[in-house]
């Protein structure tokens, strides 16, 4: 993969990066989508077309109309409003899970790369073990013991993110360590920790940023899966996954109930993936030269 090109790239003027970013179609489309989804989530804190906690049985299973843009569900709740509030939940869970992955995984990876030898071996075998648990399986286990809920979903997804970031950071750091500028920093007596902060991290940040967007989008999908099987956010907080599971039995009568949350998930994930791809292209000087 072309990821190696994101390491220790030339320093770029910030304005150049912005200009290049604005010329990159995936980046612009991805950014617009992602910002829109985030804005919708933020707006839902202050305003939604309807109150999603109120059940209006008279209005149940209405098709899309001027009053209910995407129609209503089997309890007469406005689907558009629920999608808006669901965005909040998806983004929060995925974002915090990425933060856990970065805050724990990156130091572990950098430490392993700096120390090598036995410590490296132990840390990486540890990440092998975590990887052996399919993410969803461990999430199901965690929520079984600690009970379902958004917080436990975050922990479950976050734990899986830790070895991902640890491995990416370690692999990238390992390829920076033998470089001559690290040798000369060592020759001037800097400690491993200081070299990691001053030399390694700035040079692997691009790669971590791209991995961050990938894990963010995977987090959205994982959260949807968990709440689909009832282990994510609990009622009355709307979540896209649970909306889908409720829609399943209504498939034949009210397909809009299933289509809307699915489309919301697809658009969000697509936006993030495009953003990640775009970022990779924008930050990678080698690819740029090929074009």
């Amino acid at each position: 993969m072309s990821d190696a090109n994101l390491l220790a790239t030339e320093h770029d003027d910030f304005r150049h990066i912005v200009r290049r970013a604005l010329q990159n179609r995936s980046f612009v489309v991805g950014l617009v989508i992602t910002l829109t989804v985030i804005t919708i989530a933020l707006v839902s804190f202050v305003w939604t077309p309807y109150d999603v906690t109120k059940l209006v049985i008279a209005d149940r299973l209405k098709p899309p109309s001027m009053t209910h843009w995407i129609g209503t569900d089997h309890f007469g709740r406005d689907i558009a409003s629920m999608i808006m509030e669901g965005a909040r939940n998806s983004i929060a869970v995925a974002l915090v899970a990425v933060a856990i992955g970065i805050l724990v995984g990156v130091p572990i990876g950098c430490w392993a790369a700096a120390k090598r030898g036995a410590i490296d071996e132990v840390l990486m075998r540890g990440s092998d073990i975590v990887f052996a648990f399919p993410a969803l399986l461990s999430a199901v286990m965690i929520t079984a013991i600690f009970g379902p809920g958004a917080v436990n979903a975050i922990i479950a997804i976050g734990i899986f993110n830790i070895p991902v970031f640890a491995r990416v950071a370690r692999g990238a750091a390992l390829s920076i360590w033998p470089r001559e500028f690290i040798l000369s920093a060592r020759a001037s007596g800097k400690s491993d920790a200081r070299i990691t902060l001053e030399h390694i991290l700035p040079n692997i940040a691009n790669l971590l940023l791209v991995q961050g967007t990938i894990q963010f989008s995977l987090g959205i999908l994982a959260e949807a899966g968990l709440s689909y099987v009832g282990l994510g956010a609990q009622p009355p907080n709307p979540s896209w996954g649970r909306m889908l599971s409720e829609a399943q039995t209504m498939m034949a009568i009210a397909p809009q109930m299933a289509i809307a949350p699915g489309v919301a998930i697809i658009i969000t994930v697509l936006g993030l993936n495009l953003l990640g791809d775009g970022l990779r292209d924008v930050l990678d000087p080698k690819l740029r030269r090929d074009r």
């Binding site: 220790a8 001559e180 040798l183 920093a185 020759a187 700035p202 040079n203």
Partner: peptide
């Protein structure tokens, strides 16, 4: 005791 390396491209951190 200081050092000078071979590769003029690799001996500097590109971000500083």
């Amino acid at each position: 005791m200081q050092v000078v390396f071979q590769d003029p491209y690799g001996s500097f951190n590109p971000r500083r």
